[in-house]
Simulated scan of single mutants.
Amino acid sequence: MNSQNYPIHFHTTRTLPEYDVFIHTSDGTRIPAHTSILASVSPVLENIIDQPRKHRSSERIIQIHGVPSDAVTAFVGCLYSSRCTEDEMDKYGIHLLALSHVYNVPQLKQRCIKGLVQRLTTENVVDVLQLARLCDAPDLRLRCMKLLTNHFNAVQKTEGWKFLTKHDPWLELDILQFMDERETRKETSRRHREEQGLYLELSEAMECLEHICTEGCTDVGPYHVEVNRERKPCSRFSTCQGLQLLIRHFATCKKRVKGGCWRCNRMWQLFRLHSYVCQQTDSCNVPLCRQFQLKMEQEKRKDDPKWKLLARKVASAKVMFSLSLPKRKRDEEMRVAIDNQGIRCFGYNEYCNTVLDDRCVSC
């Protein structure tokens, strides 16, 4: 094909000198340009321009092959104007990313990555993924992987995927591994959320236990504090109400044998967990708190590390939940917690007093 000069209108307000270099494309198009501008935006082009010529009288030529001439023209225009139009991104986004990577133009490369992310579809995602891997664009690669995972059935029907499975099995394996790891991460995250929910429920149970044993709630409370049976339970209705039912059962249950009643065992576990969480060693009003702590000091049990770990996780879940609340709500809860510190001044729950003393030794 015969060479032809391709005049280009650069979007710049600068007064430019005469052209002193020509860019040759694959179809023979010659794009005039200026060495000073090309060298200032691309260190790769600067090295090419600084290479010695065979004849000083010969014109400077830069060969850019492998992409359409229109894409090269758009690339040179972007070097001059430091911007890329939406129309150019629609037509030549993939080519511009490749050229900006090869010739080390980071600002243009970032614009191309952002533009291609916005234009990802199930039809072009495989091609863009291959280019992202070659052009060292991890953000673009990750977005491609996510789209592939979310719409894998549609992507499998495209020509790009069929070509990939025949000619690039390593990339196919990489995609399948990413999908498997993502499912594993989702399952792990789901289990973590469930565990955090359980720890948060235990933390609420600890707070309700202290609240009931300190202030009383509806018909359960300290023996010397008058309980208002018409008063509604605290804000955590379901937890507080269920715990009151459990306490009443625990106080009157006739199955004193350890392990004989699952409700009593659950209450026993709550008392023990509280003793690991409690920071008010001498002034705590929850039954058996002091006894459990003394027994921990006297005997080193094999299961103590597990209980301590559970206590740390319960405390951590409470802190994380508190941090996730809006600041105003968080401040309100903190004020309530501070105000409640001075209320704990009673001795024992009368209905638990006789039942618990004979069991604390065998726990």
Rank of each mutant, 00 (worst) to 15 (best):
N2G: 12
H11N: 14
T15M: 09
D20T: 04
F22V: 13
F22N: 14
H24M: 06
A33N: 07
A33G: 10
A33V: 01
T35D: 04
V41G: 00
S42A: 02
V44C: 04
L45H: 01
L45D: 05
R56C: 09
R60H: 12
I62L: 12
V67A: 07
V76W: 01
V76I: 15
V76C: 05
C78W: 07
C78I: 06
L79F: 02
Y80M: 02
Y80I: 04
S81R: 08
S82A: 13
R83N: 14
E88H: 11
Y92F: 15
I94T: 13
L96A: 10
H101D: 15
H101A: 07
N104S: 09
R111C: 11
K114R: 12
K114V: 15
V126H: 05
V128F: 12
Q130P: 01
L134C: 10
P138R: 09
D139V: 12
R141P: 03
R143S: 14
C144P: 01
L148P: 06
A154Y: 11
V155Q: 04
Q156M: 15
K157R: 13
K162Q: 12
F163M: 10
L164G: 00
T165E: 12
T165A: 03
K166F: 12
K166Q: 10
D168M: 05
E172W: 00
E172H: 06
I175L: 06
L176F: 00
Q177S: 11
D180L: 13
E181Q: 11
R185P: 10
K186A: 15
S189C: 07
S189H: 12
H192C: 02
R193N: 06
Q196T: 11
L198S: 09
Y199C: 04
Y199R: 09
E204T: 08
M206F: 02
E207R: 05
C208E: 10
I212C: 05
C213R: 03
T214A: 08
E215H: 14
C217N: 10
P222K: 00
P222C: 05
E226M: 13
V227D: 09
R229I: 15
P233H: 06
T239I: 10
Q241R: 08
L243E: 00
H249P: 04
T252H: 03
G259L: 02
G259Y: 04
C264K: 03
L270C: 02
L270Y: 03
R272Q: 05
C278S: 01
C278H: 04
Q279T: 09
S283I: 08
C289W: 01
Q291L: 06
Q293V: 00
M296C: 08
Q298W: 11
E299L: 10
D303L: 06
D303V: 09
P305D: 01
L309T: 15
V314C: 00
A315L: 12
A317M: 01
K318L: 03
K318Q: 10
M320G: 08
R328F: 13
K329T: 15
E332M: 07
E333S: 07
A337R: 11
I338V: 15
D339Q: 10
Q341T: 09
F346L: 02
N349S: 10
C352A: 13
L356I: 02
R359L: 14
